[in-house]
Structure formats: structure tokens, C-alpha cells
Simulated assay, not measured.
Amino acid sequence: MKRTILLLLCATSFSTYGQVGIGTTAPQETLHLGANTSTIRIEGLDEINNPLNSGPTRLTPVFVTESGNFTLQPAGYTSGGTGYVLPLNFLADTPNFIPNNPLGLAAPFDRYGVVINSDLTNESTTGLIQTVTINVPTNSMVEVKYAISLYFSGTNLAVPPHSTFITDGKTRVIQSYFCVDIDSDGLSPAELAQMYGVKGQYYASDAGGTRGYPNMNSQGYVNLPAGSHTLYFFGVVNDPPNTFTSIGFGGANDYLKIRLFN
């Protein structure tokens, strides 16, 4: 009887060319778990058997050694010490995350980005620059790091002549920040009031004025639950009374990097 079972196992192994299937009769890999609810448990990595397991409230990162072994211990790890770096879990690493020409202007006026104006009747104007949706796999602290290029003009960049020097010698203050729409169900008043990664820069013109692309860099941290969340990036233009200021956000080089720590 034992001999019959052994022969049967050998025959199965040869018929699948060394591939083993669990829950499938047609394995496609060396080990193939069938069914869309398949799971794997390694008890040597659980919270009872492994002190590096983060427990029931947080997921624990699993590392792969040069030999292909699964482990919870990073390379260079010293118990009770430091000297190792956990892998960076990037949710986004996006260059040029703001459109260069959302207004559809013809060249050479096609790199102003999102235009926000503070006209003669306003001393501060806030506008939406961009939205980005992220999917967070588990409760995590999320870092959002971004850089936005700026284009200054004393007249509306959206209409001819599209760009003029600012030469009045008065100071402008430009700001950016982001808000988080939890569960991507629309920004509530409370979410809109919570501003992350606030950054400001000022520009004081001289007789020669300015045009060009200075950059504004910022980062912010927020604790988020698992799920789909939308980040709203805003720009703010502040200027003195009775002045007109037009700022193009993101017309040149900009980037967005989002990573999570869990």
C-alpha cells in the first residue's frame, strides 16, 4: 500500500514538471496557490514565535535575504540598537505631477501650469492646484513631499500678453499646502480646515522685475487609516492692496513623493 502511494506521488510530480499546485489542478509556477482567497501562514513569523512581529495592530514588513529566505529581520539589524534602514514603501513617486498647460495655451505660453490670480480687489487668493488619490494598505503615517515651480507675472497669465514683469517694488508671498479627503468622499469643512505641509516664499521686486521658475519645496505628515484617500493641493497668492499678481503653479519641473511608515 505504501509503495502504491509513493508511486502515485511520483507520477503526479512528473506530470506537472516539478510544479506543485494547492487548490488547482494546473499549477503555473513551482508553487501555485489556487483560488482567489488563497493565503499563506508561516508560524515562525507570527507574534508568538517572533519578537520582531509588530502584533495585531500593525503589519510587519517581510524581507527577503540573498538566499531567497523570508525573514522579519533587516540586514544589519542589531537587537535593541539601530544602524539599519527599513525599506521605503512608496505610494507615489511622480515627476511633473502638475500639468504644464491646463489652459491649453499655444507655445511659447504653454508652461505656466495652474494659474491663480490676486486681482486689484483682493489681497489673498486661494486656488486648487491638483488632486492625487492614494490607496493606503493599512493604518500608517504617510509622508508627502513635493516641489512646485512658480511663475510670476504682473498681469493675468491666462490672457494676452500672458506675462509681464512685476516692477512695483512691492512684496508678494506665495504659499502652498495640502488637505486630506479621508475615504475620497469629498472634502468636509473640517478636512478643508486641516492644512498639511504649509510652505511660503516671498518675492520683493526691484526695478528690473522678475520672470522665471523658482521652486517651492515642502513636506507634511499625516496618520491615515487603510483605504482610498485624496490629497488636495492648494496654492495661495498674497499681495499688497491695489496690486495685481498672477502666479503659475507647476509649469516647469515639479515632483511628488508619497511614502508610508507602518
Results as ranks from 00 to 15, higher is better:
Arg3Thr: 15
Arg3Val: 14
Leu7Met: 10
Cys10Trp: 08
Ala11Trp: 12
Thr12Tyr: 07
Tyr17Asp: 11
Val20Phe: 12
Gly23Lys: 14
Thr25Cys: 07
Thr25Ala: 10
Ala26His: 14
Glu29Asn: 15
His32Val: 09
Thr37Ile: 13
Ser38Met: 13
Ile40Ser: 13
Arg41Thr: 14
Asn50Gln: 14
Asn53Leu: 01
Ser54Arg: 15
Pro56Gly: 11
Thr57Met: 11
Pro61Trp: 03
Pro61Tyr: 02
Pro61Arg: 02
Pro61Lys: 03
Thr65Phe: 10
Ser67Pro: 01
Asn69Gly: 10
Asn69Gln: 13
Phe70Arg: 11
Ser79Pro: 03
Thr82Phe: 13
Gly83Phe: 03
Gly83Arg: 01
Tyr84Ala: 02
Val85Gly: 10
Pro87Gln: 07
Pro87Asn: 08
Asn89Glu: 11
Thr94Met: 06
Pro99Gly: 04
Pro102Asn: 06
Leu103Arg: 10
Gly104Pro: 08
Asp110Tyr: 00
Tyr112Cys: 00
Gly113Gln: 01
Val115Asp: 01
Ser118Pro: 04
Leu120Val: 09
Asn122Val: 07
Thr125Pro: 05
Thr125Val: 12
Ile129Pro: 04
Ile129Gln: 06
Thr131Cys: 01
Val132Lys: 05
Ile134Ala: 08
Asn139Met: 10
Ser140Ala: 11
Lys145Asp: 09
Ala147Ser: 12
Thr155Ala: 06
Asn156Cys: 08
Val159Pro: 01
Pro161Lys: 02
Thr164Gln: 11
Gly169Thr: 05
Val173Leu: 10
Ile174Leu: 15
Gln175Ile: 03
Cys179Asp: 02
Asp183Thr: 13
Ser184Val: 09
Asp185Trp: 08
Gly186Pro: 00
Tyr203Val: 06
Tyr203Glu: 08
Ser205Trp: 02
Ser205Cys: 09
Ala207Cys: 08
Thr210Ala: 09
Arg211Lys: 04
Arg211Met: 01
Tyr213Ile: 00
Tyr213Ser: 03
Ser218Asp: 05
Val222Met: 06
Ala226Pro: 05
Ala226Asp: 07
Phe233Thr: 00
Pro241Thr: 12
Asn242His: 05
Thr245Asn: 05
Phe249Trp: 05
Gly251Pro: 00
Asp254Cys: 07
